[in-house]
Design a protein around this nucleic acid. Structure first.
Lengths: 213, 213
DNA sequence: GGTCGCATAAGACTATAGTCGTATATAGTG
DNA sequence: CACTATATACGACTATAGTCTTATGCGACC
């Protein structure tokens, strides 16, 4: 028996996905989650064979959510579902270890086919982007480093990317400016850099979104 | 009589372009330039009806070179020639006012056709990218602001984007750190921002390259 | 030839960034 | 339980960023 977890904040789209899958692959057990933390909860308590992950989910923060799950469950196959069609972003998603990318415009039959392919161990991508095989090594290292950040450090990095001062970040997170600075220094060490500018560039390359809090 | 200026630092590719054009459009007058300053010189002294501009030219600094020429000669039709195939970059090129984008892989007959179309007042893009019509208004404003920077300010911005400290920038440009700071402040005002982080994000969005000396 | 605008240059000063040391709580380990 | 490692937190200190002011050179324009 194969278990599949659908992680998407939109209940209607979850239903649509379930419909598409149950028609073609009725033997699947389907589970659902609406945000990143409940996704992690389910992955911790149940055996899941494939995760269908929406990038724009509460608590997910785009690529960070994927990085987070890849770090927690390195052996879990993950397919990303998103409305994006941008090839550079899709290339990053694949670099970070996703076994598939399914645009939200994909038809029901194609979705079922994609899920079957990924369950069989293949990588599935939209036809027009099948040539994305050049996994950017440098980007992967970067992504791993960012994945090693603690939740607090990640939030600080996101605010940094928005151009906020340490003082403003501290106000937003309700901590002292000194603490923000400590986080900033820790981020520098983990990313192997030594100033804010470089951190911001890395964050923007990762297409990170600010904490949805 | 129609005059066309080929601006590309690679003499062999200039010859190839000339060959492609003289076969199909023998009535053209062709001029050549190998860097940005000589391009500007020719545009200042002669009547040119169309500029074929290579983005990766000495002194050009990618999009900045295009911005610069667009600012100096707003009425001059410009077609960009580049090895890039990245649709987001091509979209930016079009946003900045180029009337065409010709990948370096384009065949001789297609190049001649493209040049003819642009001379006729059309916009020419590679077939697979013909749907780039969504000129990003916000990006255009940004590009205009960056185009208004002086050469010194632009160099400082490029070094900022590389994560250099003011002191290091001053050393590279052989000016005092205080002067760098003055440039930085001027950049903030022109871009409507108030700290380095925001400047760096804008610079990276413009795909700016560091000064090639 | 003055003078206006502006790019460049730089010193003095203030604000912010970044480092260091330290403390607490928590989770895992022998 | 004691020991270790790490995330979080903060104050004090130093380095850098950023502001303000002034000065000079250069081209445009009466």
């Amino acid at each position: 028996m194969i278990t599949l977890l659908i992680a998407d904040d939109h209940p209607l789209y979850r239903d649509a996905l379930k419909g598409a899958l149950s028609l073609s692959l009725p033997e699947l057990t389907l589970r659902e989650a609406g945000d990143l933390s409940s996704t992690v909860d389910i992955l911790n308590t149940e055996d899941v064979d494939l995760l269908l992950l929406d990038l724009h989910m509460p608590g997910s923060n785009d690529l960070f959510g994927l990085l987070h799950i890849r770090k927690l469950f390195p052996d879990l196959p993950v397919a990303v579902v998103s409305g994006t069609e941008d090839s550079t972003i899709i290339s990053k998603i694949v670099s970070v270890g996703a076994l598939g990318f399914i645009p939200k415009t994909t038809s029901a039959t194609d979705i079922a086919e994609a899920v079957q392919a990924i369950l069989d161990g293949d990588v599935w991508l939209p036809e027009n982007l099948a040539d994305i095989d050049d996994v950017d090594e440098e980007f992967s290292v970067l992504a791993d480093n960012v994945a090693s950040l603690t939740p607090s450090q990640y939030k600080v990095l996101c605010y940094m990317r928005d151009g906020l001062l340490n003082k403003q970040i501290g106000y937003n997170l309700d901590i002292a400016e000194a603490t923000v600075k400590a986080h900033v220094t820790a981020i520098f060490k983990k990313l192997g850099i030594n100033n804010r500018t470089q951190a911001v560039l890395i964050a923007s390359q990762l297409e990170l979104e600010p904490p949805s809090q």
